[in-house]
Design a protein around this nucleic acid. Sequence first.
RNA 1: GGGCUCGUAGCAUAACCUGGAUAGUGCGUCCGGUUUCGGCCCGGUUGAUGUGGGUUCAAAUCCUACCGAGCUCGCCA
Length: 565
Amino acid sequence: MDLKEKVVDFLKEYLSLNKEKIYNSLEIPPDPKFGDISFPCFELAKKEKVNPGHYSKHLREKIVIPDNSIFGRIESAGPYLNFFVNYTKFIPKLLKEINKNPAYGRGKAKKQKILLEYISPNPLKDLHAGHLRQAAVGGTLARILDFAGFSVIPVLYYNDSGTHIAKTLWAYEKFHKGEEKNISNKGAWLGKIYSEAHKKSKDNKKVQQEIRKIHLALENKNKKYINLKKKLYLWSTQYFEKFYRDVNAKFDKIYYDSDFVDEGKKIVKKLEKTKYLYYENNTPVLDLTEFNLPKTLLLKSDGTALYLTKDLAMAFQRIKEFNADKMVYMTGSEQKLNFQQLFKALEILKFKNSENLFHIPVELVYDKHGKRFSSREGNAEAYSKIIEDARKAAEKRISNPEISEKEKPEYADKIARGALLYFMNKVSYKKSINLDLEKALSFEGQTGPYLQYSYVRARKITKKAKSKPSPKYLTKLDTQAELNLIRKIYFFPDIVEKAAESYQPHLLAEYAFDLASLFSKFYELCPVSSVAESLSSARLYLVQVYIRVIERCLNLLGIPVVEKM
RNA sequence: GGGCUCGUAGCAUAACCUGGAUAGUGCGUCCGGUUUCGGCCCGGUUGAUGUGGGUUCAAAUCCUACCGAGCUCGCCA
């Protein structure tokens, strides 16, 4: 039941525009008092060289509303023609339709296939707040795209070649060998070891040399180091996999950049044949100044591969493997230039989809004061620390006697994860975030726990209700609180579509909060069980529909659903 | 110095791509009301588009200059 389509059917009799044009020009008014759908008259008025206000007024005079119309009123207001739905006709139809459809809001299947890479961690290093944000936003985007009807292939990319690996091996061997026996989270522990090695090697040439030796030994497939690397990798990936579960991130395919070193070098050879590559002291340089981009290196002077080298090769592999129409990369915003250069290089190489490459630069995460996480506070930025703190804080807030001490950690975990995911998702990726756990975990305001709580309340109503939900008396739903809630529910598919098309998951996060907020008002003003059975059954029906939509929102946002909290 | 991004009330944010109705929301403040299907909610209050130009019937939105913040500009991932 698409209201816009109904407006189009209505207006096409009166306008000389084609259906599609009318449809696209329709707007949702900023305030319900302007109606449910409005048609702006600016363009048509301009064509006929009349004042838009007059045009709309004149158009209204011509219109006759038939008796069976879903629209109760049509009004001219300034340059707009506003359509008001006849709710007593509309509501029962709409709610029944939603109730029938478990996948309410799912978009029509689209042909476009989108490959989405949204997180690329380095094994043996700890995950940090930035990874959390990307996993939250990227995961949500993947789910929204899928729900909107696109065919989505989420992929994960491990940076498993480079000096950072050698650094960790060095520090482990030298200072921490065997200590792992007493460590439960070995992955996070390795992250600390990496930081230690990084600090120690910074201004120490001797240490740097030792690390280089290990790096070289690895490249030469030295058995001892290869085996050690494998051992540490296992701890690291176990920790990472737990992280993916925490944030509900799923991947269809995992790539390792070490697999693309050789292929990358071959591509450098290909670029040699173009006018964009030249050598400086035996080092290949890609000159993109013609495209207003800075020059960039394709290989290090010692002949080893750089990120760009491997990314080029990987792009070809991915397109070969999945034949995607669009390849989307989500990374930290600091890599913006790198991706411009990558895409341009691919264009030079006549990559099949160079115009369908898309980079989403996600802004950084800072501490709650808006400053960079300081190294003095240890691993404050580390995911392991963030989630641990969040769980502790969540546990303190649980005061429901129905939750036993034994159950508490389980609920605290779900609340903490929901809080973090929502906090990361509610802001546009273009803005930096100040991570404030206290704000994120509040039960009030625009937070994950507020949404979870809203779901709990709705479920509680249905569990405690004496009557049964029924569509028989839906016309009794006529208070403002009920109408506002239904109106919001009606726009859910629109939001899904918009969030997907524009790659902006925060639109859904915002919608979910608005929806929950309207439900709270309904909850307060419209008692369900203490009213006459006919009204009660209608309200229960509405609650049921609400549960369907809010649950879907939570799922899309990756937020765990709880039955009590 | 060049490039990119951001600048909205005390704080945090939406709307900016695709210009249109009174710039929406949360936290906070202050005043009142509710006390339950669970911590909520209701009514009211406070207060914002960095600055200056330009384009337009119309600018938070587009262009431009400046101011401020962040990121980035060949061997780092």
